[in-house]
Nucleic acid binder design. Structure first.
Lengths: 346, 346
DNA sequence: TTATATTTTCAAAGCGCTTTGATTTTTTGC
DNA sequence: GCAAAAAATCAAAGCGCTTTGAAAATATAA
């Protein structure tokens, strides 16, 4: 390869004694180019390391061939640990379809302006909306901007029609809570995520529904909504274990919180499973595995990486064929019994 | 704002009865436009929600105003949990400088081709090289392609001149190991990362140097190189605690591994700190905090998010002023004493 | 062999900006 | 009040592709 010379289409077509039209079409696999010419063109392109100018191609085509992801993030705020796995899944699909992935980190106050820019400047052909809030302003905004989008998660039910991929969080939590109740547990704690996030609201609803169905009381002292990380899981668990009447089981919204809970439990000399049952929601993050023959935790599981793949696939399909209307997808979390749940001992 | 009409520069300048030149210059803050005109232009742009076409601007300028990050990733491989934090830091800087962040997820076998494309197509003005390997082929490749780059981490010392930001891993680990030795520990385990990563090699060198300096033996049974996640940390710790002569202290290469180690230690009824001392390398991931008045772990700490910021800043500076030669930066990890280390009891 | 259909190739016109070099308008100096 | 200098604006060329509509080359039918 002769990489020292940077060629453009004009240079290459002159070298081949062909028009730019023909060369362009040969490279883009148009049918109206003879096989002989196509292979001649392609091997010359290969030889000279020719790659079409990205921006020229995009300008001419009028399509960005790119999908945007917006990450709102204040200076010291936490970046969601689920993000990397989602991106890995989505990015994989983009690569297969020759789409680019465009990520913007932005202060919350500049977020709206960013979306407007993304839409109007033609930087991207669509966006993925992350971490939907209750009554999220981005849904109407993106509709107004006519920028195709799909939400990972769901807003509240009052929000009108829009495309999303979500887990049936309510059903997942009610089902798992019932499982604990069936094992004889009555004092069950809920270690939830922040309730500005709609998934946390739904999980709580599921939990409460199951408890009420069995006429059990949801003790507010046993419920918390907080950032889902190890230290918060630890602190809350420590606190409820010190109550006069501690819980015998816990529903936990994330693996990280569960690790903290486990640390607290072990620290007071109790055993997960034997002394206190735990069910955890497991996003199957690649660096937080809860697998094996019998997994450590009984869990509700759903791969966030697969979610990334599906969201990306849907969005691309819609962009390429707009009559392919973007769907509303609801997945059920898988319920997997592991070592952290046991019948209540009397 | 009148967002239903999508205007381009021509429309806007016709509306204003000005030339495209003047409008473009007004918007881009060129000095040769009068203040009066500039404000008239800007408010019209605002009013119509005009945003310059991204690709047209890039094509005309001949600059991508974008930085690339390549994430090699096989189907089921783990995505590095550090990645998100690094991206958060870098992305923040990009946003401030109006640069775009371009992320490519790629199968390892297509990686080289991707770099070539990134360079030749003008998609990006520079790239950040992640997870440098021993004798990494990307260094010569990017030099050949004349694409500005900076490595997060370092290759082996034989690789010739290139820009990087790295931690002094060797010094960090030798220092921390000596701290343990000073506390009376002699049987010290090393729970390291995979030694295909150059940082792991350096950490091991530091560990061995400290041990040898004090004439202590590095028992191979107490050393392991593995992926730095909770389950591996757990398994290895379980294993070494069952030895006839278990270690009294451990050097651990990541917080996630340390969580696993802690679980194993607690499970056998021992206490971190009292029964076994631990020093962990803490990348200060936002979702894995080891802070507080007295942190849980004695640790070597260095913020990966700050690293992202610095790398991004340097790269942008170099791209904007190529005589601003890209540097080689070595940071010392901070040594913070927490609750996980104690003098060896006899 | 000639007329017609088919395949292959081409010249030129965009895509929507930025930038160059020229022109017009305004300001300043005497 | 007029020439020279400074400030503001403009027309047009160019960035490197894709795409349209026309032309040339080749294949097929009569």
């Amino acid at each position: 390869m002769l990489n020292s010379i940077i060629m453009n289409l004009e240079d290459l077509s002159k070298h081949l004694k062909l028009s730019q039209t023909t060369v362009s079409r040969a490279l883009n696999d148009f049918p109206e180019v003879s096989e002989k010419t196509r292979s001649r063109v392609k091997s010359a392109a290969q030889k000279f390391g020719y790659r079409p100018s990205h921006h020229a191609a995009r300008l001419a085509k009028g399509k960005a061939m790119a999908i945007g992801h917006v990450v709102p993030l204040a200076e010291h705020a936490m970046i969601n640990p689920h993000f990397a796995d989602f991106i890995a899944g989505a990015g994989d699909v983009y690569a297969q379809h020759h789409y680019d992935m465009h990520i913007s980190v932005v202060n919350s106050d500049e977020e709206e302006s960013l979306y407007r820019d993304l839409a109007r400047s033609g930087k991207v052909d669509g966006v993925v909306v992350h971490a939907p809030q209750i009554n999220d302003y981005r849904i109407p905004l993106l509709k107004e901007l006519q920028l195709p989008f799909i939400v990972h998660g769901r807003c509240d039910d009052s929000t009108p029609d829009y495309a999303f991929l979500d887990i049936n969080n309510k059903r997942a939590f009610s089902r798992a809570t019932e499982y604990l109740i069936d094992l004889g547990h009555q004092r069950i704690a809920l270690l939830n995520g922040l309730e500005t996030m709609s998934f946390a609201v739904r999980r709580k609803l599921g939990f409460i529904a199951a408890m009420e169905k069995h006429n059990l009381c949801c003790d507010p002292a046993l419920m918390v909504q907080q950032e889902m990380i190890e230290p918060t899981g630890y602190a809350f668990t420590k606190q409820i274990l010190a109550l006069p009447e501690p819980p015998t089981a816990m529903m936990i919204a994330s693996m990280l919180s569960a690790m903290g809970a486990m640390r607290a439990i072990q620290e007071v000399g109790k055993k997960v499973g034997e002394d206190i049952s735990i069910i955890v929601y497991d996003d199957q993050l690649s660096f937080l595995q809860n697998s094996g023959e019998i997994p450590l935790f009984t869990s509700l599981r759903s791969s966030i990486r697969e979610a990334g793949k599906t969201v990306a696939t849907q969005l691309i399909q819609h962009i390429q064929q707009p009559d392919n209307v973007l769907p509303q997808i609801i997945w059920d979390a898988e319920f997997v019994i592991g070592n952290s749940t046991q019948r209540l001992q009397h």
